[in-house]
Amino acid sequence: MNREKLIKMAGAVRTGGKGSVRRKKKAVHKTTTTDDKRLQSTLKRIGVSAIPAIEEVNIFKDDVVIQFVNPKVQASIAANTWVVSGSPQTKKLQDILPGIINQLGPDNLDNLRRLAEQFQKQTPAGGAAAAQEEDDDDVPELVPGETFEAAAEESKA
């Protein structure tokens, strides 16, 4: 390297004027994780409290289950807020279902059956027929020969 380039580099590192002490190391500003701090302060404002001794959390979404093993769970019942933090694993419902059924118990097994029946009704094959039956119950049919305009004129008179 040439002398001029070295002098130029040394001048860029000085903190003061000519003759002042040079910095030994350039200060590296670390970006703090402000998102996590803001989230924790917001949760504290809501009033969440930690719920201990939870070994597993399963979140069901369509045919996928998001599973947290040994998560940190916080809740605020008044604000209807639940916070689950940890490392998630995404699994298929068919793979995890046998293990979950053993954990449910008899009361929740009935709820699971009802959910499965509702899911089957919402599928495209059975969903159209169920929707048509509901529509028939909601709107009564018009009497032959009458129109809405004629009924509105009669009510005004």
Score class of each variant (00 low, 15 high):
N102R: 13
D110F: 05
A131Q: 13
A129V: 12
G99C: 03
Q120Y: 06
Q122L: 09
K121T: 11
L112A: 14
Q122R: 09
R113C: 07
K121A: 06
Q120I: 15
T123Q: 15
L109V: 06
R113A: 15
T123P: 00
I101Y: 10
Q103T: 00
A116Q: 08
Q122A: 10
P98F: 02
N111M: 04
Q118I: 02
N102V: 12
T123D: 11
A130D: 14
A125E: 14
K121N: 07
G105L: 04
G126Y: 09
I101R: 14
A129H: 10
G105M: 05
Q120D: 14
K121Q: 14
A130S: 07
L104D: 00
Q103R: 03
A131D: 11
L97H: 04
L115F: 03
L109G: 04
E117I: 13
P124Y: 03
I96W: 00
R113T: 15
P124L: 05
N108P: 00
R114N: 13
L109S: 11
D110S: 10
Q122I: 02
Q103S: 04
Q103M: 02
L112S: 03
Q118R: 14
L109F: 09
R113H: 10
D107G: 07
I101V: 15
Q118V: 01
Q122N: 10
Q103P: 00
P106I: 06
D107R: 12
A130I: 07
P124K: 09
I100D: 00
I96P: 01
L109C: 01
A128L: 14
G127I: 01
A116V: 13
Q103L: 09
F119R: 12
Q120H: 13
Q120N: 13
Q103I: 01
N108A: 03
I96C: 02
L109T: 12
L115R: 07
I100K: 01
Q120F: 04
A131V: 06
N102A: 11
A116E: 12
Q122G: 08
P106Y: 02
L109A: 10
D110H: 08
L97P: 00
T123A: 11
N102T: 13
L97A: 11
F119Y: 11
N102K: 15
A129W: 06
G99K: 05
A130H: 13
A131G: 07
R113P: 00
A128M: 11
L109Q: 06
Q103K: 10
